[in-house]
Amino acid sequence: MASKSMGSSLHTGVTFIPFDIIEEILLRVEAYSILRCKCVCKSWHSLIRDQAFARRHLNRQRTSTLFLSDDVLSARRRSKIFDRDVASPNYHLPKETKDSQLAVEGYDNGIKGEQPTSYRVGFGLDPISKVFKVVKLCAMSGYGEDKHSNINIANYDIEKSLSDPADCSLSFGDNGDVLFCNFDYSGVAWYDPKNNSGNKLELLFGDEFFDHVVPNFAESFLRIK
């Protein structure tokens, strides 16, 4: 129960339930339903759009850096990365950090592990897999996080550095929601047409399975339709 920016004074209908317990409950609700919960009342809405909440939500889940995840990365792609690991002195595997997430920045040649300087977390829909996810977007050092609204991104291709920025799009609402497409690649570079500049970002995805939250209690409650 770390950060309680919301305080416990905000009301809910079942008034005897303090707001920090409501928060604990909502942390266990997956992204799809969370988005609906936003419409329930003002206090839920401000809780859910709070970055601190989204971060806690993400951290509850089995998050995986894309570079290391079996689910997300194709074996082919992974093997490329690991080949490079051996070959290139510039590439370091992400080290465990406090919240065990570390972004990896792509370079033209090789990859360098680096601590993200800032990040945003949001709930969003992946229109390709039709799965609702929690997304953590890390801006790498030197790139501000202010340019996050309606930017175009391009797949960051390890072989070719920046590919066509018109490929796909990534958008953020003002409320921190992330609606994104096309995340086949773990490294994405984005192109900001206003400034005519390109930057690189790392996407980290939390998956939607909650069985670890209450160990040994998985089958009974889980899964949404």
């Binding site: 809910t12 079942v14 409950i25 919960c37």
Partner: peptide, 24 residues
């Protein structure tokens, strides 16, 4: 809390309000 969370999953906004006796 997991049990309560399970009562939210997949529900409509109106149903969630009803569950928690919350007025918009």
């Amino acid at each position: 809390t997991e049990k309560v969370a399970s009562m939210i999953r997949g529900k409509k906004v109106e149903e969630i309000r009803e569950t928690f006796k919350i007025k918009s």
